[in-house]
């Protein structure tokens, strides 16, 4: 039930009883309920569980994590040489 992969929001529809969106999970497009993520916009990545977006991926933080790892990897390589 846990869809670990974040999906990218392609469109948002607020015309019905629920705020809904379509999200792209690596090529698979699915409908997603966005009621619990009012701050999410088209282009954002959402973590989805049983058809509901439960969080917006904080892109800045994700990039920071990866940048820190990248720096450590480079340092490690220098130390090894």
């Amino acid at each position: 039930m846990c869809l670990a992969i974040p999906g990218q929001i392609l469109s948002i529809d607020t015309g019905g009883p629920l705020r809904m969106g379509r999200a792209d999970f690596g090529g698979v497009i699915q409908d997603v309920c966005l009621e619990y993520t009012p701050d999410i916009s088209v282009g954002d990545y959402a973590v989805v569980h049983v058809g509901f977006a439960i969080a917006k991926l904080n892109m800045e933080r994700a990039k920071d994590i990866l940048a820190t790892l990248e720096n450590l990897t480079i340092e490690q390589r220098h130390a090894d040489n």
Partner: peptide
Amino acid sequence: MPTTDFGDPRHVSLLVEQ
């Protein structure tokens, strides 16, 4: 953000090493 970014083998090796 492609999730493969969180599976980069170089980062995995670094973390395993630590």
